[in-house]
Design a protein around this nucleic acid. Structure first.
Lengths: 206, 206
DNA sequence: TACTATACGGAGGGTACCTCCGCTTGGCAA
DNA sequence: TTGCCAAGCGGAGGTACCCTCCGTATAGTA
């Protein structure tokens, strides 16, 4: 018999948590979301603990390091992104679907600013402390989705066949990364995104 | 009568330095180059001071903040980059010249890893603490060069006319930024660079 | 109600940032 | 040569952050 689901709170680790622990965990995640959004990826963990109203020791008990916290935060939003992708896959326009998904991913990357990128990077470079914190990483799920989306567009002959998902993901992250600090972040990103998409497309025959 | 040049050492600030001060300044810059290269843009300034054999106070006297130090370090290498550009401008192949210059810039950005990008970003977003540290910033010189290179290629009709230097610079920095931590940094960068260049080119008429 | 595995929280040791100010010294004028 | 002092040195010290450790508290069960 499977154990009962883990209370209304956010995603749960392997073992069932005590009620107070679950409550604190949720508070920490909420505080982390706010604080990271306000101060970037290297916001103070102590401030997060303060904001959550727990001791610093409690934060570290739940999340042994900064990346563990980030990883948990993103798993949810990335899940949403992947879900969106599988919806979009049912559409009949392969190129439009591909671009739409890319744009959603850009949006996501920009929202989470450098955080997503820093996770992505530490993962790609295989020194990933993330892999230590459980199951399949959020990042590889995203990768798999990107693979599928790209393969579909390539099979339909609308996207260059000599790029791989890695290239595309990096470009998107790159655009988010360099545009976010510009004075007109969104406009800059949109311009670069347009360039990228044009570059990826297979030109319709003359 | 112009004052005498400032000893054999590296670039000099407005007022003539005392001999010991100039010596320490050079040592600090040398230590900074090594340390930043080894530990990235957020290497410890105290370690730099230790390595240079000076007190931390001396480091701060010469460079009031981390960015001032970075800025000085890059000014030299960026000067070299600009010089290269003006050489290349004499070439007869506008597209080749443009791409060659872009590649040099990519090379530079990758060598200096995140450092260049972080300078670039804090400058573009106009909260630049850099502007406080003297004259025209290294970055705007680079920008001017980029403008010239791009204008030349566009005038020759080989590069899309709807991109500006900002776009191009961001793309290059973005590629360097996201590729450097990948397991195969150089190969990844080269692939993305190829994509970018293809995207920028005006296709020859069918 | 009593018991204990689980969880809490913050003191404490380490590192880094940056400032401040008393001491030292290079370079010039007499 | 000597004396002077502006320019420069350096490190103690206050603040902030990271992360660990361990004595105390309590949720959940028997």
């Amino acid at each position: 018999m499977t154990p009962p689901p883990n209370a209304p709170g956010t995603s749960a680790p392997a073992r069932r948590l005590r009620a107070d622990a679950q409550r604190n965990r949720d508070r920490i995640l909420e505080a982390a979301r706010e604080t990271f959004k306000a101060h970037g990826a290297d916001a103070s963990l102590e401030e997060i603990a303060r904001r959550a109203g727990v001791g610093i020791g409690t934060l570290y008990r739940h999340f042994p390091n900064r990346n563990a916290l980030l990883d948990t935060m993103f798993r949810e939003s990335i899940d949403a992104l992947c879900a969106e992708a599988s919806q979009v896959s049912d559409s009949t326009d392969p190129y439009g679907a591909f671009v739409a998904w890319l744009r959603a991913q850009l949006q996501h990357a920009m929202t989470y600013q450098a955080l997503a990128a820093s996770l992505m990077i530490s993962e790609l470079s295989d020194e990933s402390p993330l892999n230590a914190c459980g199951e399949q990483s959020a990042c590889s799920a995203l990768r798999a989705t990107a693979d599928a989306q790209l393969a579909r567009a390539q099979a339909a002959g609308v996207v260059r066949s000599d790029v791989d998902a890695d290239d595309v993901m990096r470009l998107v992250n790159a655009i988010a990364l360099t545009s976010e600090d510009a004075t007109d972040g969104c406009a800059a990103a949109e311009r670069l995104f347009g360039l990228m998409v044009d570059g990826l497309r297979v030109a319709p025959p003359p």
